[in-house]
């Protein structure tokens, strides 16, 4: 759940996904990523979105979308029914991230997960200096009224993957510090604002 901004993460995801594949976008929102995938990559795209407003925007874009809760909805999909299952900027908003992550790699041959890094330096600075829950341009919510309930850092996520046999095939770190570009440097856990992972089941 990120406010609208430069969607460099979308270009990264578009680069990850080969043309003509079958893609499920979880928490597809207004369909802005899915519509790019369908138009630019000719994927067979499906979306799941919890809000009626999001679903209506997707329909207006000509997308196939189901109104549903991804915390409940994935168990009905057969194994490997999609080439790619995308969870972009939604991991932090689900009730059971571990269940959703394992379902992504059951339903999809590969998973793409993008999330805001809570250990990003501005977050650390905000918490350290002001002693309050960080608010940023992209995460502008008050602590008591936010869809984001499960933040994690890049280190946390990597550790989760290692422990749960999730293979990280590709990683792209993003930072808005210099115009929302891909970050090529050291210490992504400190300097990356967002991370996008291409994942597959390790076993």
């Amino acid at each position: 759940m990120m406010a609208e901004g430069a969607r460099i993460d979308h270009s990264v995801i578009l680069d990850f996904i080969p043309a003509g594949t079958k893609v499920l976008d979880l928490g597809c929102g207004d369909g802005s990523l899915l519509v790019k995938l369908v138009r630019q990559k000719a994927v067979t795209g499906r979306g799941i979105e919890i809000s009626e407003v999001g679903v209506r925007s997707c329909i207006a874009k000509g997308l196939t979308v189901m109104q549903g809760d991804i915390d409940k909805g994935l168990r009905d999909y057969p194994d490997n029914s999609f080439d790619y299952v995308v969870l972009n900027q939604t991991l932090q908003a689900v009730k059971k991230p571990d269940v959703v992550l394992s379902e992504i790699l059951r339903v999809g041959k590969k998973g793409i997960v993008g999330f805001p890094n809570f250990a990003y330096w501005k977050m650390r600075f905000y918490l350290f200096s002001y002693g309050r829950m960080p608010k940023t341009e992209f995460l502008p919510f008050e602590w008591y009224d936010t869809p984001n309930i499960h933040f994690c850092s890049i280190v946390d996520f990597r550790e989760y993957c290692a422990k749960n046999g999730v293979r990280i095939e590709k990683t792209v770190y993003l930072s808005t510090d210099r115009g929302g570009r891909v970050l090529r440097g050291v210490r992504p856990n400190l300097f990356a604002e967002n991370a996008v992972y291409l994942l597959s089941a390790g076993r």
Binding site: E52, R56, L63, T64, M66, G68, D76, S81
Partner: peptide, 21 residues
């Protein structure tokens, strides 16, 4: 309605579902 959608999803059918408030 969700039961129908589910059965269609399992079959890979092109189904859009909206629950109007």
């Amino acid at each position: 309605a969700r039961e129908i959608v589910k059965a269609m999803m399992i079959n890979g059918i092109d189904v859009t579902y909206c629950e109007i408030d």
